[in-house]
C-alpha cells in the first residue's frame, strides 16, 4: 500500500522568497504526523502544497500514491482540512454551512455530523457571524470529519482557543475521526501547542528555514534524548565524554546535561565519577523541538 503522504524534494517559492527548500516527508496510512516549527519555518506552505492551494515550484507531492496536481479530483475527495481561522459566509446558519459543505462532497456521514453537533452543542439555526472563534473551529471540524476523509490536515487548529474547546477538539479528533477505520485514518497536524498533541502524534518533523532538521518517531525521540542531573559530594567533574546536545551546565556540585542516545553510558559514567544522586528525565516533544528548531 502506498504511503498516504509522499513528498519528495518539495520547493515552494513565492515572489518574495523560498518558503520550502527541498522537503521530503512520508507518512504511512493510519498515522498521526506532526509538523513542528517556528513561525515562518515553512509549515503552512508545506500544508498548502499538499492541499493543492499552492503549486509546488519543484518536487513531487503525492497523496494516496496520486500526484496532487494531476489527480486533483480523486485526491481532494479523500482529504479534509481545518484551517487556523476558518471562514464561513457570514449570512449562512450552521445548518446551511453543513448543507453547503455536504453539497461539495461525494461522501457525507450524517450520523457523524449529528453526533459531533451534539458533542459540541452547536445551534443549527445560529448564523456563523454570531459564532465564537472556538465554535467556528468546531464547525470546521464537523465539516471536515463528516466528509469521511482519509487524510485530515490540521493547520494550527487549536491556537487561540480556550482550554475547554481545545480539549473537546482533540477528543473529537481522537475519538470520532479515527473511529471509522483507524488503519486508514491519517492525520497531519501543524501546531505550536506541542504538549497538547504530545500523546497523539506517532511521528513528527521539525522544520526550520524551509528544511526538515529532524524527522523521527515520537517514542524513539523521547527514548533518545534524556536530561541528566547529578549531584556530587565535591565539585562536579569537567567535561562529559558522551554525546550531548546542549552545552553542559555546571553549578558547583551539580552537573546537568542532555545526552543523545547514550543514557545508560552516561549514568554509568556519573556513578563512576561518584555522583551521590542522579535524576533522569526524558525530554518532552516540546523540549526536543526547542533543541532542534
Amino acid at each position: 500500500m502506498s504511503p498516504t503522504i509522499d513528498v519528495q524534494d518539495l520547493v515552494v517559492r513565492y515572489p518574495r522568497g523560498e518558503a520550502v527548500k527541498g522537503l521530503s516527508l512520508t507518512v504511512e496510512p493510519g498515522r498521526c504526523h506532526a509538523l513542528f516549527g517556528r513561525n515562518g519555518a515553512g509549515k503552512t506552505s508545506t500544508l498548502r502544497a499538499l492541499l493543492g492551494l499552492v503549486r509546488p515550484t519543484s518536487g513531487q507531492v503525492k497523496l494516496f500514491g496520486l500526484d496532487v496536481t494531476q489527480h486533483e479530483a480523486e485526491v481532494k475527495a479523500r482529504v479534509a482540512w481545518v484551517p487556523d481561522a476558518p471562514g464561513f459566509h457570514p449570512w449562512m446558519t450552521v445548518a446551511e454551512v453543513l448543507g453547503y459543505a455536504a453539497a461539495l462532497r461525494t461522501r457525507w456521514n450524517l450520523a457523524l455530523q449529528e453526533h459531533l453537533l451534539t458533542r459540541f452543542e452547536l445551534d443549527l439555526s445560529a448564523p456563523t457571524s454570531a459564532l465564537s472563534k472556538g465554535q467556528k473551529t468546531q464547525l470546521a471540524l464537523v465539516c471536515a470529519i463528516a466528509a469521511d476523509p482519509e487524510l485530515l490536515v490540521l493547520d494550527e487548529p487549536t491556537s487561540g482557543l480556550d482550554p475547554l474547546v481545545r480539549r473537546q477538539f482533540l477528543e473529537a479528533v481522537i475519538g470520532v475521526f479515527q473511529e471509522g477505520d483507524p488503519a486508514k485514518k491519517t492525520i497531519l497536524v501543524s501546531t505550536h501547542l506541542i504538549s497538547e498533541f504530545e500523546g497523539v502524534v506517532d511521528g513528527f518533523t521539525v522544520l526550520s528555514g524551509g528544511r526538515a532538521v529532524l524527522s523521527t518517531e515520537a517514542d524513539v525521540a523521547r527514548a533518545r534524548y534524556c536530561r541528566l542531573r547529578a549531584w556530587f559530594d565535591v565539585d562536579a567533574p569537567l567535561g562529559v565524554p558522551m554525546k550531548t546536545v546542549k552545552p553542559v551546565s555546571r553549578e558547583g556540585r551539580m552537573l546537568e546535561f542532555i545526552v543523545d542516545a547514550e543514557t545508560d553510558a552516561a549514568r554509568g559514567w556519573l556513578t563512576a565519577q561518584g555522583a551521590v544522586r542522579i535524576d533522569a528525565s526524558a525530554l518532552s516533544l516540546e523540549e526536543i523541538f526547542l533543541l532542534a528548531a
Binding site: 498515522r31 498521526c32 480539549r167 482533540l170 481522537i174 475519538g175 479515527q178 504530545e198 497523539v200 506517532d202
Partner: peptide, 16 residues
C-alpha cells in the same frame, strides 16, 4: 480503545 485514548489524549493506535 476509544474511551482510553480520548481520556489520556493519546493516539488510538497507541492504546490499540
Amino acid at each position: 480503545v476509544r474511551v482510553l485514548a480520548e481520556e489520556l489524549k493519546v493516539n488510538r493506535n497507541t492504546v490499540a
